[in-house]
């Protein structure tokens, strides 16, 4: 049996809102040691999502046997919208479940609401993702990266990211013209999350589909910072930290044809 209680429903709500536009169906793998893990590829096969909600993200977590919950994320999102952000949220499944029980408890009122979500059998390919060495890593405020991704998409379908030891440059060239945003590393002592940190082994220039970057920044509400790891001719890793765990997006770069 699985029983996981979140202190606040907002965490799972934000996670699902971050991925449901990229992936419609996915398996939630549940185990006592790993908590909940998900690996899913978006419908256009360009973006891979890796989610880990450790047991530490829960107020209470128990999973007697490894379980796979096949979920339609659009349906789960509808159910999660029934509860308030501050409610306790408990998810419960039997050992061979055909449904997931979702329970909201209002902390102030004596109100408990229960919903049952039908589960599905979902075939999915699982890929091995090793901890790769990266040419460079940038950590920056999540909202700032989101603004860049959204603004630059209005200019071009592609966004080029150029990293040197002194700066990170976002470059877009489109039919109406072009634009670039240059950020330099700095440390904000009072608000550390406002800092921009660049770690560089070697400079990198990569181009990504602006559409997918805009899918990724839907996770902005999850974390105050985003870490972007880039390697020449390899997928970029965009990581949003959870209180205990992470939401990672691996995005395939574009190449000159």
């Amino acid at each position: 049996m699985l029983e996981g209680k979140f202190e606040e429903a907002s965490l799972l709500k934000k996670v699902i809102e971050s991925i449901k536009d990229s992936v419609k169906l996915c398996n939630f793998n549940c185990s006592q040691s790993k908590g909940i893990t998900v690996q899913a590829i978006d419908d256009s096969r360009v973006l891979l999502i890796a989610l880990k909600i450790d047991s530490g993200s829960f107020q209470e977590f128990r999973c007697d046997r490894d379980l796979v919950l096949g979920l339609d994320l659009e349906s789960l999102s509808k159910i999660l919208k029934q509860g308030n952000n501050e409610d306790y949220l408990t998810i419960i499944a039997e050992d061979s479940p055909d449904s997931l029980l979702v329970v909201f408890e209002d902390k102030k009122k004596d109100r408990i609401s229960e919903f049952s979500l039908k589960l599905m059998d979902i075939d999915s390919d699982v890929l091995t993702i090793d901890d790769m060495e990266h040419d460079c890593s940038i950590t920056m405020p999540a909202y700032e990266f989101a603004k860049i991704a959204r603004d630059m998409k209005t200019l071009s379908e592609s966004l080029q990211i150029i990293i040197t030891k002194d700066s990170v440059k976002f470059n877009a060239e489109g039919q109406i013209g072009s634009g670039s945003i240059i950020l330099k590393p700095h440390t904000d002592m009072e608000k550390p999350d406002e800092s921009i940190k660049i770690e560089l082994n070697q400079p990198v220039v990569l181009t990504f589909g602006a559409k997918y970057l805009n899918d990724i920044v839907k996770a902005t509400a999850l974390s105050s910072t985003v870490t972007i790891k880039l390697t020449d001719k390899a997928p970029a890793l965009f990581e949003y930290r959870l209180p205990s765990g992470y939401l990672r997006y691996y995005l395939a770069p574009k190449f000159d044809d």
Binding site: I41, R45, V46, L47, L48, D125, V126, L127, T128, I129, S158, T207, G209, A234, P235, Y250, L251, A252, P253, K254, F255, D256, D257
Partner: peptide, 14 residues
């Protein structure tokens, strides 16, 4: 022109 490869082409199936 730019080509967009699949993410699967970068990883090994488990």
């Amino acid at each position: 022109d730019e080509a967009q490869p699949s993410i699967k082409s970068f990883f090994i199936p488990d």
